[in-house]
């Protein structure tokens, strides 16, 4: 009984209908979302009964040197489906993305970890501190330019 994977196309269509202007692009599996609208998208995906993604599997950050990708893996326990959406943020310094802490509490430590190791700040997270390394550590070790 495999889970249904919601395609990027379907997700983009739904998002365009409900929250116009949030989708930046999509491919077969993934939809890219406007960074400033992450919180709204997350809330919509969780609360909309046709999606019902109550479970946030993980948030991953990938450093592509010119930009960072934040990857959100979601699961709906009732609809038996999974989905992925990504957020692309350009630049190296002063990166800010809205936090989804209020939507999925499970994002708590993962967002802190991304700030610690990748250097992307999450606005609205109540405790945006380093998690693995100590305060005052210079740099963000998982970045490709950290040696």
């Amino acid at each position: 009984m495999a889970l249904r994977e919601v395609s990027g196309q379907d997700l983009a269509d739904a998002l365009n209908g409900a929250l116009p202007g949030t989708v930046q692009g999509f491919d077969e599996e993934v939809v890219w979302v406007q960074p400033s609208r992450v919180h709204a998208v997350a809330e919509y995906l969780r609360d909309d009964p046709s999606h019902d993604f109550q479970f946030l599997n993980s948030i991953s950050a990938v450093d592509y040197v010119e930009y960072f990708d934040l990857v959100y893996h979601l699961t709906s326990l009732r609809q038996l489906s999974t989905a992925v959406f990504k957020v692309r943020v350009y630049g190296r310094d002063e990166l800010n993305v809205p936090s989804v802490y209020r939507v999925w509490r499970g994002a708590d430590f993962q967002e802190r970890e991304i700030w610690d190791l990748m250097g992307i700040r999450f606005n609205g997270h109540p405790n945006m501190k380093r998690i693995m390394l100590w305060e005052g550590f210079e740099g963000h070790p998982l970045r490709k330019d950290f040696l």
Binding site: S58, S60, A61, V62, D63, V71, H73, F109, Q110, E113
Partner: peptide
């Protein structure tokens, strides 16, 4: 879970570990 990204090289470009204990 392991989230792997490949850039065609011999090692993973990114290897994110979704660790149950932390979450």
């Amino acid at each position: 879970a392991f989230y792997l990204v490949s850039d065609g090289g011999i090692s993973p470009y990114r290897c994110k570990i979704r660790s149950p204990s932390l979450i």
